[in-house]
Structure formats: structure tokens, C-alpha cells
Design a protein around this nucleic acid. Sequence first.
DNA 1: TTGAAAGCGCTAACAG
DNA 2: CTGTTAGCGCTTTCAA
Lengths: 335, 335
Amino acid sequence: MVTLKQLAKELNVSISTVSKALNNSDEIGEETVKRVKELAALYNYKPNKVALSLKQNKTKTIGVIIPNILNHFLAKVLFAIEREATEYGYNIITCISNESLEKEIKSLQLLANGSVDGFILAVSKETQMKNETAHFNKIINQGLPIVMFDRVANDVLCDKVIVDDFDATYNAAKMLIGEKRKHIAFMSTIDDLSLGKLREKGFLKAIDEEPRITGYVLKLAEKDDEQKKIMKFLKDNKMIDGVISADSSSGVIALNTALSYGLKVPKDISVMGFTSLTIANHCIPRLTTIRQHANDIGACVTKLLLNRLQHKSSEELEFSTKIIKTSLVKSDSTL
Amino acid sequence: MVTLKQLAKELNVSISTVSKALNNSDEIGEETVKRVKELAALYNYKPNKVALSLKQNKTKTIGVIIPNILNHFLAKVLFAIEREATEYGYNIITCISNESLEKEIKSLQLLANGSVDGFILAVSKETQMKNETAHFNKIINQGLPIVMFDRVANDVLCDKVIVDDFDATYNAAKMLIGEKRKHIAFMSTIDDLSLGKLREKGFLKAIDEEPRITGYVLKLAEKDDEQKKIMKFLKDNKMIDGVISADSSSGVIALNTALSYGLKVPKDISVMGFTSLTIANHCIPRLTTIRQHANDIGACVTKLLLNRLQHKSSEELEFSTKIIKTSLVKSDSTL
DNA sequence: TTGAAAGCGCTAACAG
DNA sequence: CTGTTAGCGCTTTCAA
């Protein structure tokens, strides 16, 4: 990489002259500016990012900590964050916590040494289960802002972007009730997440409001053979005529299971889930889904962070919690 | 963030003393080392990464450029890269080219300003179609090593990690032929990728070797309604009794289509694809898959880059191309 | 055993 | 209009 020094030497001017010329300072003569710019272009000069960061004490880099990049929803949010960040001239350093508190702490610590200007993250499963927040507060006290999305730590004072989880399943259940379904099951592989609990509560609320409806709940653990459990569950509970899945996989499996049992979907049973459109469209019939608008979430979370970074006196800025409403995309697996 | 300067001031010693003490230099007295370390621990001192990078002229950061993070295979490789890089004390800056040549060039340029020590990337679709390589060579000439995986630019001199695409589909077809299938279809949404073409060639070779077998090829474009096309294709070609999918989705859809047509899988028709295990296990019966060992690929590609970075005189190091063999995971959608 | 000073690449206040 | 200088945080050589 060419440096200012080298350009200066070759042009027989001082380093600062070169710097100013390249930055269009009106202190420098037209002719000089031209000479400098030409040589810089010739050598493909790019200001060294590291030196700039050191000088300006900001890196224009965001640390993003994601619990699981194989989760389609989280990957989609990451995608949106990257796009939005790039748009504003920021890079992202990605760490994957792998649902582990320890890795989350490590990643945070590792990047809090001047590598990034702030963080965007979704809290890991283990962190949520242990209700650990000290590591977040430590970072914030060091002056690095955090913005959380989807899985947030309620007790930490920071910007947040979440989904209307309770309402989503409440409305979903209402919809199935509207279809005259009588035996509705709720399936979840994410019972240990607080948003998983919210989704269950929304479902139960809707069921409770209708005395003639029976609700069922199937909780699946990480290590379970999901397919086996769901097949057994639907075999043992033949009266079930509606399924709401709280996660991205169990709805798909429930749909396929129903079909394999010879049921007609949606005539005999309705199925819906928080599945990505891509996957939902692999199903025949296509699965009705609750869309979480990962794109909007990613854009929103990035804007919140950048806004805070650009405010000199970020102290003055109130912390906000944005709720991105889900929407029901009716497809062919419901009436 | 606390700096050496602040520690030095508080301890009434010089900056260099503090630095040396923290780096366990034996130049410094035992007592002083202790005092320094205690204060550093108290203030949670961490050497500023940016300053270190500037000083040492290396960032311990890898630029990773991925065409599409929603592709499960690519996401999995990214996951593995992140893990491996972290293991060796490297961070990754992720850019998503979104299959666009322009974005790929931009990302490369943007990070080639001292932000990263080297690149890991899979070539974007557009780049492959236009057979563009100048931007890669430019980066390499700047002294930044590139390691490519999966989708590589053959004409660029650099380390590469690929999959045995030809053999994978050749063997897959052989397997279906061994099942006495007579009418075997090959489906692909990735015909524009060179690895997509290789997979087709492998399939065709196997078909050509068996005069009594009929091969069919269905190519799907990005914007197609995959499900509709596949349903039509299987309806129009009722004699098909075997399907090999070159991508992650068409196999799943073909399987579901067959079921929806009342066919028994695998009795009446066998289906297999390059689908991730997660998705394959949503199917009933579970889909037989060709595993690409994303983990191994990610680990291999990272090791290659780090090895090159650690070699002072990287010139001496020969460029190598590693082939990670796929393996067939037989499941319930084949005999 | 400790400290002063230079330098990584850059910007900017100040001097000429 | 151009150059000198200081400084961002750190390591390291050389001097004390």
C-alpha cells in the first residue's frame, strides 16, 4: 500500500500538503492539487484505515454477535445489517456466540479493545437462561453502545428492536379459531427463550378466551428427534385440527406428518409457523407463515446504533424499544 | 478505554516501563511489574487493537466475502471460518456480495485499505458468468492473499478449496442406477455456476454409460416458481423414477411433489439432493443427501489462509487446491 | 532497572 | 499557498 509519505517524497512536497490536497482543502494551490491527485490515482492510493481509526478514535466498524448463523431468521437479519451498515460506510465484524454465554462474553471483550464502535446482538440462549447481564453493562459502561434485537435482555438499558411475539401467536390462534378449529396444538423448540414463552402465552390467552376450544402444547428439546416426537404427538392426538409452530422447523414437520398420515391439508388440519418463506414454499401445500420482517429488523437495529454513534453526546439520547409487528402470510396450509 | 499513558501517569513511571511490564519483559523489576499489573487489572486495561495494528502492520482480521448468506451451505462454511479464525485469534469482517460483481469489487476494495490481512471468498454468480478476475489479481498484487472456496475462479493463482462436484453426481446417479431406476431426472437451480455445470456433467456421464437408462434435465431459473415448474415437470414425465437435485431446494420440492401425486417414496421414485441435513430431516421420508462437509471446507480454507499469513515469505509457498470429497448420506427417500 | 525517543500513517493546528 | 509539528496508542531501540 502506498502511503502519503511516499507520495510526498515523489512529488517533493510535504506530507501534509499531500494530505490536504487529497482532502480538497482550499489551502492548497490548484496546480498542486492536480499533481497530487494524479499521482495518487496512478498508485491507487487509499488512506490507511487503521491509521485513520487511531487518529479519529473511531473505527467505523460494528460488532455483530449472533447466537446461531444457521437460523434462517437470524441470518436474514445479519444480511440486512450488513447491507445497511455498508450503505453508511460501516463494516461489520461478525462473531457467533453459538448460544454460549462464555463465547458471548469473549466476543464482547475481544472487540471492546477498540476494534468496533458499538455492538448489535441477539442474546444467546444460555445467557437468557442464566439471566446474565453483567457483561453487557460492562461494555456499555466502557462507552460502547449496544443495540439488541429479537432476543433481548430486558434488564439492560439500551436500544432494542423486538417482535410482537405475544400478539403474533394470539392472532394466529384467533385465526384458526375463526376457521372453526376445535383442537389446536402449539409446538415449540424454543421454550427456553423468553420470546418462546411469550409466543406460548399469546397462544394460551387466545385458547383461554374460547371455552369450547381445546389447546395442546408440545415442547421439543434441542436434542430431540423432532420428527419422531411430532409424529408420535399427532398420532396420539388424532383430534388435533390446527397447529401453530413457534419456531422455523416444527410447523414444516407437522405439515409433512399430517400429509403422511393421509390427512388433507387444510381441509382436515391447518398448520402455520414462524418459517421463512423460502422453506415454507418447499411444502405442498405451501405453509402459512408468520413473517417477522427480518429485513426491517436489521435495518432498524442498524439505524438505531448508527444514530447513537453519530450523536456526540449520546447520553442525551433516550433508549428506545421498537416493536416490528409480524404479519400473517396466508398460504395454502390454512383455510 | 484506559491507555498506557494513563497508567504510567498514575504510577509515576514512563509509558515504556508500563508497556514492558505488561509484556513480561525481564528488563523491569519484579516489584514494578507487580504494581503495574495490579493497576492494569484494576482498570481492565486492554491494549488498543488499532494502535497495535498500525504498529505491527497487521490486523489479525480476515475479510470474508460470501455471495449469499441465506444459502445454508455458505452460512455453514462461514460458521466454520468464524470458529477456526477465532481459535487462532483472528476476527472476521463479513461482506455479502449478493451475487453481484460490483458489490464484490467494492467489498474487496473497501477492505484492501489495511482493514484486513487477507481474504476468504466464494465467487459471486455474476463474476462467474462474466468470467471476471481482474479485481482478484489486483488485490493479490497488493500483497493481500486470497483463498477461494466452493465457487472458485480457475484462472486466478491462489489457494482453493473445492468439492468433487463431478464425482458427487456421477456417484449419485450410479447409485440410482444400482436401484434399477430407468428414468432419472437431474434438477438444478444453479446452472449458471461452474460447479452447477460440473454436477450436470457428472450426472450425464453416468447416464451415458448405461444405454438402457434415460436421463432428463430440468433447469430452473432464479425467478421461476420452482414448485410450479417441478410439479409440471413431474406430471409431464410420469415415468421418472429417480431424481437428483444439484441444489438445496429442488430435491425437497421434488420429494414433496411426488408425495402429493400419491407416489410412494422410495418405492415408486427415489429422490436425493445437496440439501442440508436440517432441511432434509424435515421431509417425510427423510431425504437422502449429498453432504458437502461445510465444516471441513471452512476449517481448511481458514488454515490455508492463516498458514500463508504466518509465512513471512509467502512467495515461496506453492498455491494448493484442496478437494474435500462429498459423501452420500443414505436416508429414507432412496432404496 | 528505567526512561527517552522514534515511528507506524494520518490529520490538523499553527507558523511561515 | 506550503511546511512544521504534535499527537492518536503502542512497541522497541538505544541511552542513562
